[in-house]
Simulated assay, not measured.
Amino acid sequence: MRVLTRSAGPAFVVAGLLHFLKPRLYEAIMPDGLPAHRALVYASGVAEIAGGAGLMAADPRVRRWAGRWLVATLAGVFPANVHMARHAERYPDIPGGRTTLLARLPLQGAFAAWVLAAGHRSG
């Protein structure tokens, strides 16, 4: 369990950095009705980097804050996951297609539990 909770911070930092390295990938999954796709991709990248860095902090208060921050971030990007599942035909490169995209939706709850556990880890 310790490895899992300690890996959450670095995992979210890397995920956030990918928003800047591969922004088109993230823009492609944005719901059509949202404005400023590039800006939102960058904002969510910053949110993931900040949350991931917070999970690596020595101060347990910062880690707890970061866990809650990342749960809010996951909730904020959840519409993109729903959009992908509803429009699976737009994402033919996803192995398993719609089934995989639908299966990803409840995994967001597991990610939320992961970051909360990481935020509450000791030491």
Rank of each mutant, 00 (worst) to 15 (best):
R61V: 11
V41Q: 13
P10Y: 08
Y42R: 11
G51M: 04
R86E: 13
L34C: 00
V41A: 15
L74T: 12
R98W: 04
A75C: 13
V115D: 07
G52I: 07
L74W: 12
I94H: 03
R63D: 00
L102P: 05
L55D: 10
A117W: 13
A28E: 15
M30F: 12
L102R: 14
A36F: 14
F20C: 06
R86M: 14
V62M: 06
V71F: 01
L70C: 03
A66G: 03
F78S: 10
V115I: 08
R86S: 12
M1P: 13
G67I: 04
Y26L: 12
A53D: 00
E89H: 12
G45A: 08
R104E: 00
G45T: 09
L18V: 11
V77F: 06
T5R: 07
H83F: 15
Y42I: 04
M84S: 07
P79R: 06
G16H: 08
H37D: 13
L74P: 08
E89A: 15
H120C: 07
I29D: 09
A47E: 02
R24K: 14
P60F: 10
A15T: 11
V115T: 10
P31M: 02
H83Y: 15
V46C: 04
G119F: 12
L105R: 05
I49L: 02
G109P: 08
L21E: 05
